[in-house]
Nucleic acid binder design. Structure first.
Ligand SMILES: NC(=O)c1ccc[n+]([C@@H]2O[C@H](COP(=O)([O-])OP(=O)(O)OC[C@H]3O[C@@H](n4cnc5c(N)ncnc54)[C@H](O)[C@@H]3O)[C@@H](O)[C@H]2O)c1
Ligand SMILES: NC(=O)c1ccc[n+]([C@@H]2O[C@H](COP(=O)([O-])OP(=O)(O)OC[C@H]3O[C@@H](n4cnc5c(N)ncnc54)[C@H](O)[C@@H]3O)[C@@H](O)[C@H]2O)c1
Lengths: 212, 212
DNA sequence: GTTTAATTGTGAATTCTATCACAATCTATT
DNA sequence: AATAGATTGTGATAGAATTCACAATTAAAC
């Protein structure tokens, strides 16, 4: 029985990308089918977890054999929305924004960076790696014209809250935030935070609080 | 009653960094005390969540008044292990590794990058932003000499698995992995993965699967 | 064709997290 | 020093996510 989309556990969605990567990797290795046990082994998940996750979307497995790899790649790409091209804008062309803008992995994964926003007069109204760089004041206009759907935020943390507010106002519904700022937002939007300091601090915590 | 460290929920630890940041921010704003309600409002958590998290480590609040901000900053820094300096190595001096190596936020947060590893002859045996760059073959020796405790991995995904294996072998117990590779590891170690593609794919999923 | 081995899909049980709701207690005011 | 208002800390409750465990099914071997 296929689950309705509302009831998919949040964490299942996060793991879907990992399964997709595992399927792609095993395809390259020349495999045709892969079992939930093997998928789990490669990612430190239990086999039951893998099966339950995948079964949310359909009965893809063949008992006694496993999952058809190329079929599942297509299926997961469709589920994740990778069957279309997403228009992405990067905010802040600094060290991190520059690295992200020149990152091939994004485009290969159907996330196409079509605009960069900054406020530095030395950077705006030029191109960077063939991507036009606009002044942030142009935000609404450019978003409308280019139909930008996803924003990646890499401005200094100080200006992050205001920048994110303006992104929400401009109607961009998906935000990936690399700054330490944490901004509450309406339910209709989706924002994910990648917090380097936070990750390192968790690591620090665990290194201390375990006898080794 | 103070919880023993074993029983701290995983998710509480992740939120600790966020609370710390909120305390610091409110200190800058000139506040002395802050309530669980206000902490929650700034981060989209319930007040009860905030109180329960903090109460894992002690009774820090004053009823009717809230939490003493500068006291809690010290307390959280100690809990998270930010009362000491951590020695960090970056693996892969490419676009991302370069951005990370020059990121001031790390050092300010007590994470001190003392070595960079790469394999490119054009990059090794020089310094980058005053940080020595070593060939990866020197890993064990340098780790021993510099007492490196945390590794940040930013090598190409293809070489990630082997690199992480060697980092584990060298006895570095904390790893922050920016590549898409996912590597199982022994319990005594702690590894966190930051997966850009995965985050964007979740965003893509949610943009599709919700009627807006 | 029959048997053996492998593997799925999934209810039930378990474990882990978050929220509720309120007594207890402190602050601030008069 | 009495009162009103705010806020904590936490046991009880509800909710989510994970794991267990096994019947059902298919593949592969003989
Ligand atoms: N550098 C890293 O490795 C790294 C890692 C993790 C997180 N971060 C976070 O990413 C953010 C950027 O870091 P960075 O090192 O690239 O900083 P940076 O100073 O190199 O770059 C910031 C860029 O943002 C631009 N900018 C400033 N205000 C702006 C605004 N209102 N709108 C648009 N652009 C604006 C600046 O002109 C500059 O080009 C910071 O919040 C930082 O905490 C950085
Ligand atoms: N560039 C980004 O914005 C970005 C964002 C998220 C994740 N990532 C991931 O980070 C990793 C690095 O990306 P990048 O864009 O910086 O790549 P890059 O090609 O610019 O840099 C990779 C560096 O690693 C070095 N290297 C190669 N093999 C090595 C080894 N075995 N040991 C040590 N160093 C080695 C190379 O010489 C090079 O300097 C990739 O896995 C990528 O998927 C990159």
């Amino acid at each position: 029985m296929v689950n309705t989309l509302r009831t998919i556990p949040l964490f299942t969605v996060e793991r879907l990308s990992i399964y997709l990567r595992t399927f792609r990797e095993s395809l390259v290795e020349g495999m045709d089918f892969i079992s939930s046990t093997e998928i789990g082994k490669r990612n430190d998940f239990t086999a039951a977890q893998v099966r339950k996750d995948l079964s949310c979307f359909g009965n893809f497995g063949i008992k006694g054999k496993g999952y058809n790899i190329s079929e599942l790649i297509n299926t997961l790409e469709t589920i994740l929305g990778l069957d279309r091209e997403w228009k992405v804008a990067i905010f802040g062309l600094g060290k991190l924004g520059g690295a992200l803008a020149s990152y091939k992995g994004l485009k290969n994964a159907r996330f196409n960076v079509v605009a960069i926003f900054d406020v530095d007069p030395k950077k705006v109204d030029k191109t960077y790696k063939n991507i036009p760089v606009y002044h942030s004041d142009m935000l609404k206009k450019v978003v409308r014209e280019k139909k930008i759907q996803i924003a990646i935020v890499a401005v200094p943390t100080d200006s992050a809250k205001a920048t994110i507010q303006r992104i929400l106002d401009a109607g961009i519904e998906g935000i990936l935030n690399f700054t330490e700022a944490r901004v509450p937002y309406p339910d209709e939007y989706i924002m994910k935070n990648i917090n380097l300091a936070g990750e390192l601090e968790s690591i620090s915590y665990y290194l201390i609080h375990s006898d080794r």
